[in-house]
């Protein structure tokens, strides 16, 4: 019903701002479990609450409501102000996103042959994430890889 994608954006914005669920919940005056349910889309967030969150996280309300594919490749607005209402912001390539993605794409030692079903599923899931979500995955995989390198001395 749309609230799952609102919740996902909320989680991304919260994480981007460096707040834990407990911290943000305390700031907006709700419990951590309520905020968690907002983020999972299991509880409808009402306008007044989202306005509070938008203000704290310095995002325009539209940020949370845009369809998932609208966020893909869209530059992050740091000012919190979107473009003119009658002409929405053009969907440009996100250079910071590309910059994050490229090292992974160019990682050496990857098998360039035919992908297994698991790899294809992983790729599909990855592609269905928003750019910010993809960056989180990349960061995690990079960290995991570095840890393995540390353990096994390989890379």
């Amino acid at each position: 019903m749309g609230y799952k994608s609102i919740g996902r954006q909320l989680q991304l914005a919260r994480e981007e701002a460096g707040y834990s669920q407990e911290q943000l919940a305390a700031k907006i005056g709700c419990s951590q479990s309520t905020l968690s349910n907002y983020e999972k889309g299991k509880r409808r967030i009402y306008l007044a609450q989202l306005e509070k969150i938008a203000e704290i996280l310095n995002k325009p309300i539209e940020y949370f409501l845009r369809p998932a594919d609208y966020h893909r490749g869209e530059p992050e607005s740091q000012s919190g102000e979107p473009g003119n209402q009658s002409s929405p912001a053009p969907k440009k390539k996100d250079t910071s996103y590309q910059a994050n993605l490229l090292p992974i794409l160019n990682m050496p030692g990857e098998d360039q042959g035919e992908k297994t079903a698991l790899e294809q599923n992983l790729l599909r899931l990855f592609q269905s994430l928003s750019p910010a979500g993809q960056i989180l995955v990349i960061n995690f995989v990079t960290w995991l890889k570095e840890r393995e390198v540390g353990c096994n001395g390989e890379f």
Partner: peptide, 16 residues
């Protein structure tokens, strides 16, 4: 009515 971008939530709340 309401702040820019908030109409969808306003509508859902009215419905609810």
């Amino acid at each position: 009515i309401g702040r820019k971008g908030g109409a969808y939530l306003l509508l859902m709340q009215t419905f609810d």
